[in-house]
Design a protein around this nucleic acid. Structure first.
Lengths: 98, 98
DNA sequence: CAGGATCCTGATCGATACTG
DNA sequence: CAGTATCGATCAGGATCCTG
């Protein structure tokens, strides 16, 4: 076998983790701050942070920090992330038929 | 908050586990036996068995055992599972743009 | 405000061996 | 053939506390 995991499987693994879908779905509505995402997803900071970093590594989400006090950081979908919208909607559509 | 997890998140969790996507994708091509799925996915029997049971519990896959020696068991997509095809293809389509 | 560091528990997974 | 049993390693996720 010796096959390397396909990108889609890696992605699905990430998508399957706690909070990934809610985060992505929240960002479809536009850029959000860390605290807003925390509110909407109900995730503890550690988990939210981990998830965002993974999504960033996967180039689905971008991080923008504004150098001010107190700090302000915005998370947004990248072009690649936007491309996912269709698939996410297909999933949501399918969910309705359950 | 106090929200129960949405079905789609439960599903994504399952889909994110080792082998789920390959199994589903193999079954899109038609019913398969346990050993065939083992071959195609490269999963150890334990993991394949666990995954199939989860997919069965989620009513995406059906199991049919023929009472003969040696035993023969077929796994196939249910109607509900077939409904997923579109979303899986959307995912695959998106993967190509990576 | 936006996280990082620690600690810890339970889930998950692969390898291997065995059976109806 | 189609699984199950067992074991050990690894990993994910929550809670809590701390800081630039």
């Amino acid at each position: 076998m010796l096959e390397v995991e396909r990108p889609i499987e890696v992605f699905l693994e990430i998508l399957g983790r706690r909070g990934s879908f809610p985060i992505l779905w929240a960002l479809v509505r536009g850029p959000q701050r860390f605290s807003a995402l925390q509110q909407e997803t109900g995730l503890p900071p550690r988990t939210l942070s981990l998830r965002l970093k993974e999504l960033e590594d996967f180039a689905l989400v971008s991080r923008t920090a504004y150098p001010q006090v107190p700090p302000r950081v915005d998370y947004a979908l990248t072009k690649k992330g936007e491309g996912l919208k269709g698939a996410l909607e297909a999933l949501l559509e399918w969910e309705k038929t359950l």
